[in-house]
Design a protein around this nucleic acid. Structure first.
Length: 578
RNA sequence: CGGAGCGUGGCGCAGCUCGGUAGCGCACUAUCUUGGGGUGAUAGGGGUCGCUGGUUCAAAUCCAGUCGCUCCGACCA
């Protein structure tokens, strides 16, 4: 392609509100343009990168014996009603009516659509296992898009789905997809800095899930990582080794005045007890099946509550903090709350509270706490489970080593869905006994645009992007320098350009009438891995100059041998990504 | 949804406090100049100052409302 044909513009300045590195470079290099909040156009350079990424994903899906299909973006409400998600999912789903007043939506994922296909097309266990994928637009009306392509509303996702007759078959297939993902991230240049962690199954439901996280300080997820063993988990699901507590005998409950002691720190200091001996109450209103329910959660004073665990435990689609009025309506006093005597609430407590004894807890009375509060004797819990948000330094659940923490951006995930969708949509096959069985499903996603953004985060310097060759919009850029008295530079460059194309190399020819500095700066900015400079100076000696974007040295190359030399460098760069 | 900020030519910004001819840099067009790391000069084109309403002789500027965008938080496969 010739530079003059690119619909793009490199920018010297970016909107001051573009903060994320990948956002700034993507705008400055002319890869994308915003149209609305979280909605972008891809310009030629950006689209070429996106397509390169997609093709790598296609190749790796083929390795995992998954086959490409394409499903609609606009979907009828019916299939979403079958699985119940029409009501479960809130405003994140974009809904509309067609001319016949039928409820429709923009697909935010495709479990329903693919399950519908499967139930019509798969009748027998003999057809299983089967795996399909698509690379398709999704729309999620995010409450807050941000950071350029990292968090958007309209995006492209590679989403795959597998169908199995039994759990063993899924268990066998899942690691193959896991490996395909590892290969894909390696090939796109994120290999060294992307890890898989155990993750929440969230709105997808299911039994086991992993997220592939690109490690980045600006990431939205907190990850807990054990340096000793291989434990790695998203904070949403991370667990830890609980210390064994020598439970004392229950002592009689006793009310004490604790004026102006609303926080755990204040209470612990005032009563001179460790925070581990206090109980902290946290209040939420959970939405389950369209019904609001007051939730009274209790964790130990030194612990933080994990809302994901709480939401899963009470089976809530949405959680919001309760207001002071709602807390009082349930019979508790904000700042001095106790589960004792609370009405119309789901009381859910962490294991540490259930196992320990003689906690300090509020007295549901302004300025008073109770000593020696005990589960079972003084109040009954509706649910006892793990509610702790694991923090850095807590002991690893496998080996008790102190956990480290880091931030990451989710670029992909894999889920064992089980029968979550086949059940609601009655997707069955006959097994070898002629008996109908719900299909067991897995789902596998990768956000293509987000992956592109992460690649920029990983590969750039002060002058611009440094594309890994596998996803670079072009493998080679030829910069022609024509002086006032052209001496055949342009002709030589065009000849080289055509020869490289004939050799199967992706080439960009910058033939614009611009000064050298402009062309060099643009070349650095858009980040093509191999730059060839054709100028009168070298041409007189039958030479051109070659420079790799990630290196600072330049070298002269004989024009005759240039093609072979470029092919050599391309091969080397690709090998570097394996 | 809570907090903060911003909407003035394609981009970056000034002007607003104290109402009175809409400005600067980049980009764009033309001519000249320069020609291996964002040359220099001259002359141009391009803006309902987000929108609506109000105050006023007069509104980019003051007031109210509204829409949009960004950042922090909540939220989120």
């Amino acid at each position: 392609m010739k530079y003059s044909q690119l619909m793009t513009q490199t920018l010297r300045e970016v909107p001051s509100d573009a903060e994320a590195i990948s956002h700034r470079w993507a705008l400055r290099a002319g890869l994308i343009r915003p149209l609305a909040a979280g909605i972008f156009s891809f310009l030629p350079l950006g689209l070429r990168v996106k397509q390169k990424i997609e093709n790598i994903l296609r190749e790796e899906m083929a390795q995992a014996n998954s086959h490409e299909i394409s499903m609609p973006v606009v979907q009828p409400a019916e299939i979403w009603q079958e699985t119940g998600r029409w009501n479960e999912i809130g405003n994140e789903m974009m809904r509309m009516k067609d001319r016949g007043d039928r409820d429709m939506c923009l697909a935010m994922t495709h479990e329903e659509a693919v399950t519908d296909l499967a139930r019509h097309l798969i009748q027998s266990y003999r057809q299983l296992p089967l795996s399909v994928y698509q690379i398709q637009t999704k729309f999620r009306d995010e409450p807050r898009s941000r950071a350029g392509l990292i968090r958007v509303r309209e995006f492209t996702m590679k989403d795959g789905y597998s169908f199995h007759v039994d759990q063993e078959s899924l268990d066998e297939y899942y690691p193959k997809m896991y490996e395909a993902y590892e290969r894909a991230f390696k090939r796109t240049g994120l290999g060294g800095s992307t890890i898989a962690v155990e993750s929440d199954t969230g709105m997808m439901g299911g039994t086991e899930a992993h997220e592939f996280m690109y490690l980045n300080d600006g990431g939205e997820d907190t990850l807990l990582i054990c340096e000793k063993c291989d434990y790695r988990a998203n904070r949403q699901v991370a667990t830890y080794t609980r210390e064994t507590i020598g439970a004392e005998d229950a002592k009689p409950i006793e009310e004490v005045a604790t004026p102006n002691c609303k926080t755990i720190e204040e209470v612990a200091a005032f009563l001179n007890v460790p925070a581990t001996q206090t109980a902290k109450a946290v209040f939420f209103v959970g939405l389950t099946g369209g019904e609001e329910k007051f939730i009274f959660a209790v964790v130990r004073g030194d612990h933080e509550l994990n809302e994901t665990k709480l939401g899963n435990a009470v089976n809530a689609q949405e959680l919001r903090p309760a207001t002071d009025d709602e807390i009082r309506a349930a019979g508790a006093e904000p700042g001095y709350a106790s589960p004792i005597g609370v009405q119309n609430a789901t009381i859910i407590i962490d294991n540490a509270i259930a196992q320990g004894t003689n906690f300090v807890s509020g007295a549901n009375k302004e300025g008073y706490h109770n000593l020696n509060v005990n589960t079972g004797r003084d109040f009954e819990a509706d649910i006892i489970t793990d509610l702790v948000a694991v923090a850095e330094g807590m002991p690893c659940p496998n080996c008790a080593t102190n956990l480290g923490s880091t931030r990451g951006i989710e670029v992909g995930n894999i889920f064992k869905l089980g029968t979550n969708y086949s059940k609601g949509m009655n997707a069955t096959v006959l097994d070898e006994n002629g008996k109908a069985q719900l299909m067991i499903m897995g789902s596998y996603g990768i956000g293509v645009g987000r992956l592109l953004a992460c690649i920029i985060e990983e590969h750039h310097d002060d002058n611009g992007i440094i594309w890994p060759i596998s996803v670079a919009p072009f493998q080679v850029e030829i910069v022609v320098l024509t002086g006032k008295k052209p001496a055949g530079e342009l002709e030589a460059a065009e000849k080289l350009y055509e020869a490289l194309q004939a050799a199967g190399i992706d080439v960009l020819l910058d033939e614009r009438d611009e000064r050298p500095g402009v062309k060099f700066n643009d070349a650095d900015l858009i980040g093509i891995p191999i730059r060839l400079t054709v100028g009168a100076r070298g041409l007189a000696n039958g030479q051109i100059e070659m420079k790799l974007r990630h290196e600072s040295d330049r070298s002269d190359v004989a024009l005759d041998g240039a093609i072979a030399r470029v092919q050599d460098e391309v091969a080397k760069l690709i090998n570097g990504l394996k």
